[in-house]
């Protein structure tokens, strides 16, 4: 099967799709990156290209770089957190596998949010509640795909998959906390170094 054809296949046949994708090595890194970029664009489209009647926030502050970085940070830390806990839980997936399965399972959400943006251009605020159901369907579908993908790749039971997702959330929080600590540490080191540099340069004068 063509590597692109796995994307709709796993979305519509998650039960056998992920198993097949794993054993036939159908998950492609290139495809997963494309899917990730589409996901980022769907988020930006939601902030920028909805009908004016659905734009409540300031759309001039939307930034591709910021969205790209923040989602990448979240997804990458989720991948490593899940991988880290899978070692403890005897999961079988590699880091690359987890990245791929995460991005493949984001597809329904991406599609539904593009649909949301499209329809929001012809809907009124009164129909907004119905419209937001679309997003919730996307989230639910993606969530189910994620659980199913974890079961296939990590060889978890259903409960195990849910447990690993919860542990991953905790892991992400820990990773982000450590990152903040690290950044502030580097900032202090840099500040000290620059003070020393200036001190010396003033003395040389």
């Amino acid at each position: 099967m063509n590597k692109w054809k796995y994307v709709p296949y796993v979305a519509f046949h998650p039960i056998e799709g992920f198993d097949e994708m794993r054993y036939k090595k159908g998950g492609s890194f290139l495809v997963s990156v494309v899917l990730y970029l589409l996901f980022v664009f769907s988020i930006i489209a939601q902030q920028k290209y909805c009908g004016q009647q659905f734009l409540f926030a300031d759309d001039t502050q939307v930034s591709i770089q910021k969205t790209l970085l923040s989602t990448l940070l979240l997804i990458v830390s989720a991948v490593f957190a899940n991988w880290g806990f899978s070692v403890l839980l005897e999961g079988k997936a590699r880091v690359k596998d987890i990245w791929i399965l995460l991005n493949y399972s984001l597809v329904p959400y991406t599609v539904f949010s593009f649909l949301y943006v499209l329809i929001s251009n012809i809907a009124t605020q009164e129909e907004g509640t119905l419209l937001s159901v679309l997003l919730w369907i996307g989230i639910g579908w993606s969530g189910f795909l994620l659980l199913r993908a974890l079961m296939a790749y990590q060889e978890f039971s259903f409960g195990g998959a849910i447990g690993s997702v919860l542990l991953t959330v905790i892991g992400v929080v820990i990773i982000l906390f450590l990152l903040v600590l690290l950044i502030s540490l580097f900032q202090k080191i840099f500040a000290t170094a620059s003070v020393i540099f200036y001190e010396i340069s003033f003395r040389l004068k």
């Binding site: 004016q52 009647q53 659905f54 734009l55 605020q125 009164e126």
Partner: peptide
């Protein structure tokens, strides 16, 4: 940027 008003007109 009055989304409420825009909604009415739309």
């Amino acid at each position: 940027r009055d989304s409420r008003g825009y909604n009415e007109a739309y």
